[in-house]
Nucleic acid binder design. Sequence first.
RNA 1: GCGCCCGUAGCUCAGCUGGAUAGAGCAACGGUUUCCUAAACCGUAGGUCAAAGGUUCAAAUCCUUUCGGGCGCACCA
Length: 580
Amino acid sequence: MDYFIKNIVSLLKEGTNLPENEIEKFIEIPPDFKMGDYAFPCYTLSKIFKKSPNIIAAELSNTLQIIINKHPPVSPIFKERYRGIAEIKAIGPYVNFFVDKVTFSELVLKTISEERDGYGNKTLGKEKTVVVDFSSPNIAKHLAVHHLRSALIGNAIRNIYKTLGYTCVGINHLGDWGTQFGQLIVAYKKWGSENAHKTYTVTDLNNLYVRFHQEAEKNPGLEDEARAWFKKLESGDFEAKDLWQHFKDISLKEFQKIYDMLGIHFDAFVGESFYNTMVEDTITRIKEKGLAKVSEQALIIDLEPYNMPPCLLRKKDDTTLYATRDIAAAEYRKKTYDFDKMIYVVGSEQKLHFNQFFKVLELMGYDWANNCVHVDFGLMKFKDGKMSTRKGKVVLLEDLLIEAVERIRKIIEGKNPSLENKETVARDVGIGAVIFADLCTKRNKDVVFDWDEVLNFEGETGPYIQYTHARLCSILRKYGKPVTADIQFALLKEDESILLIKNLVQFPSVIIKAAEFYEPSLICNYLIDVCGSLNRFYNAHRVLSDDEELTTARILLVDVTRQVIRNGLTILGMQAPEQM
RNA sequence: GCGCCCGUAGCUCAGCUGGAUAGAGCAACGGUUUCCUAAACCGUAGGUCAAAGGUUCAAAUCCUUUCGGGCGCACCA
């Protein structure tokens, strides 16, 4: 915690004459709490003083002890500076500091119990705006499990930044424009029946899409037809536009259903088509800057000097590509939101695209180009290969979510048949399990989709976190009185309590780190740690007892832990049921 | 061919902005419930940190090379 580190650093400064920021970098947390709460390694000093680090550590710990002793305990300087440091001990090459447990517990528990839902919140991002572009699926296809990643990671990152005080704009950059709609129209005109599009479902659209790609393999001429239809669409042809609108409406309805199940909402739901009217101006600006040139009949920006393939602005038939629309969208967003940072949560297979796109923004002279980041993530695939909508090789997201809820429902019947609100709980826990399973590994690893793994509910899983939360709620319900922070902190002296409090104090810094690395998995791992500590505490000590003082003390610990778990789950986009 | 990512226990992963004995979960085996939810907890077993060099007082962590896997490289998004 800042308070103790600050005191240790200022003490070390007096003892070593090193600058404070140097010292702070070295401070670490020992691998075992029995060795100390904080440690200062003496390897660097050993170089300066040409003595072995072990000897330095021993000498330094004596020096520090003397410094502390010099300050009369009544002195206000002593109180301010060295309050909270209980013991200094040299172990091998380290000087280890033991913090006063009572001061420590009081500080941490009081802070959390005052800040409640706001614990972990910061003002780092005050007056700053972050745009998060996430989910962004292509329309006319079902949402499948591989669409989960962008939606969940993006949603969590938005929440992380929100917690740090940023104004966040979550944008769903729907893939609702491009040659694929030419393909769909061709397929519809060839194999769909007249006016059938009015009763179509996404499944029908999906089938058309799959069939197009099957037939196009035998008959490459279809691709040309598709491009021609897209050209018509882009130049405002009535029939094309009408069909496109229908297809889009059908898709949006289905998407909304899934987003509701996942509890994800967007501040802006604008697809690529929205920027269609702006691309002309964008291309003009690019031309004026002398960046565009014609190559193989297409309009491109040469990126050879930067060791990248060219960025295509217009195909030889004059229609635009998604890079063109991305550039227009970026300009529009800068104008509209004046963001300080724009985050694109898109799979790592598009890394090159974003490198090209960001380079173009830079070449256009936009100094905000380096405030754009591509937050990439690994591919989701099956054991035997890539998921593919074209080949119908997918697991539909809706099916997964329904199955998850269904399995939880069965577990509830087995474990807690008298539970109220079974439906709500099954949904919260089932969906939560899916969310947690996806978020809990570092985002840039590829994931192999496995039903049993996603729907495992024991160990390091979403239900484990939620279960721990529900247990705590249950204790608080039984206690039935208001929780007070006016307790005897010395009573929370067992190892299990102290280790738990040590976990709780980390929360704010974990959020900051998660934001820095755009890494929601850090929050997941953190929650697993907290729940592990809590469950060990729970198992070793009874909270509710005849000892009133002890009960009030432990109840406070239970209450703030519950609070931290809840705050963490909220960031991940999960519910925190009070019973399960 | 070129570029990027990944390679840690049987499986899934933490640890990677260098530091004290490489940590969890799942699976296996054994234990814990007259007591606040056993969706929990404890124990046993399981590791040449892909390989080889290098930098350093110190390398799973940094650098180089090799091997293995994934992804991407002009008219799809």
